[in-house]
Nucleic acid binder design. Structure first.
Lengths: 156, 156
DNA sequence: AATTATTAGTTGCACACGCAACTAATAGGG
DNA sequence: CCCTATTAGTTGCGTGTGCAACTAATAATT
């Protein structure tokens, strides 16, 4: 019996709990860590690009960015050419947390893959990437609606 | 770079969207389908056992059960020996939906694994099971708190 | 038998998330 | 140039979820 969805759910939900617990001292929730890292890895990216990195809704992205700004872990610069666009950067206050969070993720992945050999680790990463791509592709087709804002129009 | 967590998140969230959309006509959300199927496959199980099937919180389970009861898709019988326990069954009204939902899940899995061969499908299921087991095991250790009851013990 | 501990289930709260409607800025016709 | 369409981002709303505190029933202990 195929139970991929169930396993994805368990992996996801337990990950949320893990990061919620580990991140509590820094007053950031499990929902923000992904965004902080992506901003660090892609300095100057905008919210559209940020959302696309994890297939997130733009509303979700906006809220995560808002929280990270309030906490002072990132800063934003309005694009001079196009005033709608704000470019995001990790602030000096945020830098140390990037390191900490990266370490947490490494630990979590170690826990997840503790009884897998190197080959299996590569394989599961590779196969899950395929599943994730299929998932987003299916939903993109399913609803002609955009993931972010490629066209803010209603569906047909 | 290992991105298992990210992929799990994408698979999970897109699955939620998929079922939300497909289930809308039946007035049940993505959060109830799992529970309905498990009750069908294990008639008479209680909420503790139901929660354990998907590593869900007992509060989440209680709410899903409540919703399914309100919709009339399941019914509950108070255990005669122990009046705290209620045994759950799919109602005659619920039966047809079990078939429909099972079909939806099959379709979703087909989408997810569309470009995987049989061997890869088995492999990813098997490996993700390991990850899911590790995830719940880690969290169980991490917080000596139980998945369901107030105090430890029980569970397999 | 009375008190205490444990267990099944419920509920208030907070957060993550997607959707849709909104604002504001820019781009593209006419 | 104005008018409309598109795009970046924000926000209100509803759902799914975990946690912790609660009730009620049963088990254990004294």
């Amino acid at each position: 019996m195929q139970e991929i969805s169930k396993y994805a759910s368990i992996i996801y939900r337990n990950g949320q709990m893990y990061f919620d617990e580990k991140l509590a001292p820094y007053h950031i929730g499990c929902g923000q860590q992904f965004f902080l890292l992506r901003i660090h890895d892609n300095p100057g990216l905008n919210q559209y690009e940020l959302a696309a990195q994890g297939m997130f809704d733009k509303g979700t992205t906006a809220r995560a960015v808002k929280k990270l700004l309030e906490l002072g872990y990132i800063r934003r610069e309005i694009d001079e050419e196009d005033h709608r666009i704000s470019k995001l950067y990790v602030s000096s206050k945020g830098e140390p947390f990037v390191v900490i969070i990266r370490e947490m993720i490494k630990e979590w992945h170690l826990c997840l893959t503790s009884n897998l050999d190197e080959k299996e680790k590569d394989l599961v990463d590779q196969l899950m990437k395929k599943l994730a791509d299929n998932a987003s592709e299916t939903m993109k087709k399913e609803r002609k609606r955009d993931m972010y804002g490629t066209s803010d129009r209603k569906k047909d």
